[in-house]
Design a protein around this nucleic acid. Structure first.
Length: 259
DNA sequence: ATGGCCGAGAAGCTCGGA
């Protein structure tokens, strides 16, 4: 089973990219973030024509997440969850589904703007609620994958210029502590299970020719429960669609599970 | 030189993103 996560920064603009990338990557599950469209504008039919069924939680203008599942894979409709249970939130940032026995989460973590702001406080409270829910969810689902745009670069090697970024949003100690607290639940960063090129990133600013200079951050992640980590044979960032015309600023991350 | 680029939605601008 191949699972991928991709922040597409508007599904309306990037629909053809998603369809083209599904055709070339042949992933079984694709988690999307930043749909930026309401449920009634979701392009369900076009994605079904491409061979994928969708579960989604949309929102006008901002946020919005989806899980695309290749036709033929069984999905337990009864246990699809939208948003973090018990965390009252108008922003649509999380959806979870059980696909062929694997609990998969597509999450769009808050950006946080800057340490000290209200948005940063919201990010930390969202992260705390996520941690509590994930702890319970892992007990119920031994095969568990937490994928998405974390908006956290967990270590300095995930940052193109750690000195310039020190203390800033996305790399601050509070955010990295929250990331570590997820790892302490037993989750494994699939990308770091394998040899990777230096300066591997998943996001590059649209400005300053950042992609050409590889001035990026690794903020999109696939964290796996121990039993899934054990059967993970590969994890990579696919920079191909970042080179296409009118790209998303993020590249997809793919994990391969031998199951 | 702390802005540059995008997308969305309301209007030729502001907000949010990371």
């Amino acid at each position: 089973m191949k699972i991928a996560t991709w922040n597409i920064n508007s599904l309306k603009v990037r629909l053809q990219h998603v369809i083209d990338w599904l055709a070339m990557s042949r992933v079984d599950v694709l988690c999307l973030q930043e749909l930026k469209l309401p449920d009634d504008k979701y392009p369900r039919a076009a994605l079904e024509a491409a061979g994928y069924r969708s579960w989604f939680s949309g929102q006008k203008t901002y946020n919005g997440v989806a899980i695309l599942v290749r036709e033929g894979l069984p999905v337990d409709e009864a246990v699809v969850i939208r948003n973090i249970p018990g965390f009252d939130d108008l922003q649509q940032r999380l959806i979870a589904a059980t696909i062929d026995g694997v609990r998969v989460v597509s999450a769009y973590f808050p950006n946080g703007q800057a340490p000290g702001t209200d948005k940063f406080a919201y990010k930390l409270s969202w992260l705390a609620a996520l941690r509590e829910w994930v702890a319970a969810e892992m007990r119920a689902h031994p095969q568990f994958a937490l994928t998405g745009d974390y908006n956290i670069a967990p270590e300095d090697r995930d940052v193109h210029d750690p000195q310039a970024w020190e203390g800033q949003n996305l790399v601050s100690p509070e955010e990295r502590d929250a990331f570590r607290s997820l790892v302490e639940l037993g989750l494994v960063d699939a990308f770091r299970c394998f040899e990777q090129p230096d300066k591997s990133f998943s996001w590059w600013d649209y400005r300053m020719l950042a992609f050409r200079r590889n001035a990026g951050l690794r903020i999109d992640h696939i964290l796996l429960s121990p039993s899934l980590a054990q059967c993970c044979s590969a994890c990579e960032i696919d920079k191909t669609p970042r080179r296409w015309d009118q790209p998303s600023d993020h590249a997809p991350v793919i994990a391969t599970l031998e199951r």
